[in-house]
Nucleic acid binder design. Sequence first.
DNA 1: AACCAGGACTCTG
DNA 2: CAGAGTCCTGGT
Length: 300
Amino acid sequence: MIIDSPIDLELTQISGQTSQPPWICENGVYSDLVCIDGEYSIFNVSQNGKYLDFNYSGNITQNQAIENVKKIYDLDFDLLKFYDYLDNQAELSEMSKFCKGLRLFQAKDSFECLISSICSANNSIKRWTKSISDMKFKWGRNFNNFYSFPDCETFNDIFLDEEEEHLKTNAMKDNNLKACGVGYRALYMRKASEIFSLEMDLSDIGKMSYDEAFETILKVPGVGPKVADCILLYGFGFREAFPSDVWIKRIVSYLYFDGKDIKVEKVREFGMEEFGDYAGYVQLYMFHYARKSGLMNKLK
DNA sequence: AACCAGGACTCTG
DNA sequence: CAGAGTCCTGGT
């Protein structure tokens, strides 16, 4: 079925949002496993003109399927109204034409998003997406050769490194977190996983105000301000988050502060103040505008 | 082959 | 409480 809401699927898929790695793509069809109320379904989406062509298999209702695909691709967000806003801001007016159809790629699994976001810190898009894909393959459940991300109870039992694996088994040496290329982040991931299986539900974060959610998630090991905002934006749909890293700092500094060096923390405050509920989208568009327009090379 | 990029954390003054 | 150093891996 066609879903009547404009999107650039490929751009959204490759944009490196820490909700999840890109879906498996074959002949223009992007597919992945989605869990809805304990039922597993395979979602297939492809580009049809300006719109998404969507179908699914599995034991869920059509309403559930549509509701979930709309959430994942943020299809209820009014892009055209957002472009009106961008076009009327002197500093942002170039962005819509470079990023046309780019949408939030929302988490289908908030725990996967938590671990992905921790994995992305001090890392490259290519490397963290491979790490997460490796984890799904090693420890996820297999449905028709699609793999779920392990839940936090399963995750707690994963060996940290070769040493821990060797201590407890005689098996091969790559059945551990560090074998996925996560380096020192392995311990952060395990501690984070333990917190959300022993101390609180990850879903509680979504019920909080933005400020409370930010302060709460910030206490998780491996989660600093940037990663916290990614989790809140991509994992829980807090659009007022403005995840600020060195690139956003350079771009904001170039566009708004005459190239002056600003603290990342100030950039975050500026973004939230200036862009309000559009902050998350503006951050997403700034990054891809910088990539595609050549601004990024210039700022290096 | 030495060096760099990328956030969070820890230690120092 | 700011600033510097360290962590791991893949890329040059």
